[in-house]
Structure formats: C-alpha cells, structure tokens
Computed example of a mutant assay.
Amino acid sequence: MPADEIANHKRALRAELRERRRNKPFVTMERETEQLTAQLKALVGDLRATSLSAYLSAPTEPNTRPFLNWAREAGIRTLLPISRIDGLLDWTTGDGETEIVSHLGWPEAAGELLGPMAIDEVDLILVPASSVDRSGMRLGWGKGYFDKMLGSMGKWPPVFAVLFDDELVDEVPRERHDEPVDGVVTPSRIVPLSKRSKAWGLPEA
C-alpha cells in the first residue's frame, strides 16, 4: 500500500477510535478503571518491577491515575513523560499532584527534568495507544513521540500498551518508523504478544 494511503488509513482509524472512546458511558469507564488498575498491579508483580515509566491519561483514555497513585504509595519509582518541542520525551517523577497541559494538549506531570536517557533505567514501560494488533504492532496517535523513544533506547525493558478490550485487533496499518510492543494491558487481561514476552512467565490470555 502506498505511504499516503497508509497515512490516510491511520487517520481514519484514529478518528473512529476517538469517537468510540468519547461515547463510552461513564459507568462503564468507572468499572473498567477498577479492573484496569488490578491488571496493571498484576503486571508489575509478574515482572517484579521496582521502577517503571507510565503517563497521565487523558479523560477518554483508559484511566492510569489510580494505578499511578498505588505505584507511588508502594514505593515504585515512576517516570512520567514531558514532551519536548524537538520531538523527544524528557522524564520526571513529578510530585503526584501538579499537572500541566503540554504544547500538544496532553496532561503532563510537572517536576525536575531527568533527561531523555532516564527511561533506560526502568523495569517496565507502559505506553498509550489507539490500538495494537496481534503481532504487537502499535498504532499511536500520530505525533511519533513514543515510537521515537522506543526506537532510540539503549536497553529494551518490557513494553506494554494500555488499551480498552476492543482495541486489540487483528491488524493495524504500519509505517517504517512504527515500533512494536511486547504486549497489552486491558481491563480484562494481560496479553503477551512478542516472542520474548513468552519467556517472562506471564499468564496466557
């Protein structure tokens, strides 16, 4: 498929997924937040992670905030991304309270900047996504920040995308710069997808 057709396909899929998320009932979001938090805690336990990177979820995304509160209380060092104008992600641990709106319109933590390479020291990376396919290919939201980060890492700890259940699909359109993930976490399950994830002893979904 020509590159312009792939890009158009991606835009159409993202628009459909955004609309689906906007229309999700509040009571469903509340229930799925509780379920997702339990799955994320289980993933941390399964991988014996003592440090991780995650992100502050936007209102229509799977809600990571209760999990982040739990991680802070549990003493798990958590890095949160700060988007830079040059297209890179910087990192901070934040203070658990202060938030800003980034130049991209995303919620971000405020705090001391630790530099882009701080991500190399974590045991687990949690990333947002609009959808992921069964091969592990991730469809992001079109800005390229997380693909660039994953593609430039010196080390590669386990990488899991956080999704709603119906966003794990058979196939997503792929471009050369797109980076895969090792698995997904949804409200109902943890799904290992990469070959190396099979060696981590995660329960099969």
Rank of each mutant, 00 (worst) to 15 (best):
I85K: 12
D4Y: 11
E61G: 04
A110D: 14
L52Q: 14
R134P: 01
G94E: 06
P81R: 05
V132M: 03
L88V: 13
E34M: 07
I82K: 08
L124N: 06
P128F: 15
A129S: 06
A15K: 14
H103N: 03
M1V: 15
A38F: 12
I82L: 10
V101L: 06
Y145H: 03
D120G: 05
I119M: 00
A205Q: 06
N23M: 07
G75Q: 10
M137E: 04
I125Q: 13
L113G: 11
V172Q: 08
K155L: 05
E167R: 14
P2H: 07
I76E: 01
L104P: 10
L193S: 02
R196P: 11
T92G: 05
L17F: 15
T33K: 12
I190L: 12
S57I: 10
T78P: 01
R134Y: 04
L43D: 15
V172H: 04
S102R: 05
L43R: 13
T60E: 09
L52R: 14
G87V: 14
L17W: 15
L89T: 01
V162Q: 08
L124Y: 12
V27N: 08
D147E: 05
P25A: 02
V184L: 07
A161V: 05
E112I: 06
R189G: 03
G105I: 08
W200R: 09
E99D: 09
L79Y: 02
L13V: 10
